[in-house]
Amino acid sequence: MSTAIDFLKKHESVSPSHFEENAKWRKENRAWLEWSRNIALSLVEYMESNGLNRNGLAERLEVSPQYISKILSGKVNFSFKSIAEIEQKLDIKLLNVVEWA
């Protein structure tokens, strides 16, 4: 056997990979995950322009720093109510909806 295969066998993980399951989940939830990532990026920009860290943003939103970490992960399935609360507390716009005439 080759050295590379020997190396891989010696360092093989004992726990099963969940890559396929995770990839399927990301594909099934692609639409709202994109919205969530965009909100996270908007909040990072807000933090940078206002000199805030996660704790500072948590104080302004009246939530825990752990929740801010979760939001910034880009994997939160927000309700319209929670988005509206963030927009009101920070005086920013996070969502733009296209209006058709």
Score class of each variant (00 low, 15 high):
Ser13Asn: 15
Leu95Gly: 00
Thr3Arg: 08
Leu43Tyr: 01
His11Cys: 07
Asn96Arg: 13
Leu41Pro: 05
Asn77Arg: 12
Ala101Asp: 15
Trp25Val: 04
Leu61Asp: 05
Leu90Arg: 03
Lys10Glu: 13
Lys81His: 12
Lys24Pro: 00
Val97Arg: 09
Lys70Tyr: 11
Ser2Met: 06
Glu59Val: 08
Glu99Tyr: 14
Phe7Leu: 08
Ile92Asp: 04
Ser2Thr: 12
Leu95Lys: 02
Leu52Ala: 01
Trp35Asp: 05
His18Val: 10
His18Gln: 13
Met47Glu: 04
Leu61Ile: 06
Lys10Phe: 08
Trp100Asn: 15
Ile86Gln: 00
Ala101Phe: 14
Asn96His: 14
Glu12Trp: 09
Ala84Tyr: 06
Arg60His: 10
Tyr67Asn: 10
Leu41Arg: 12
Ser73Val: 04
Glu34Met: 09
Glu85Phe: 01
Gln66Gly: 14
Leu72Lys: 01
Ala4Asp: 13
Val97Tyr: 10
Phe7Gln: 05
Lys70Ala: 10
Ala40Ile: 03
Ser17Lys: 06
Arg30Ser: 08
Val44Thr: 12
Asn77Thr: 03
Val44Pro: 03
Asn22Ile: 07
Leu43Lys: 00
Gln66Arg: 15
Leu33Gly: 01
Ile5Met: 11
Ile83Asn: 00
Tyr46His: 08
Glu20His: 07
Arg37Ala: 11
Lys24Arg: 09
Trp32Met: 01
Glu20Pro: 01
Ser69Cys: 13
Lys70Gln: 13
Glu34Tyr: 06
Phe78Trp: 04
Asp6Gly: 06
Tyr46Gly: 02
Glu48Met: 13
Ala58Asn: 05
Ser73His: 04
Asn29Ser: 01
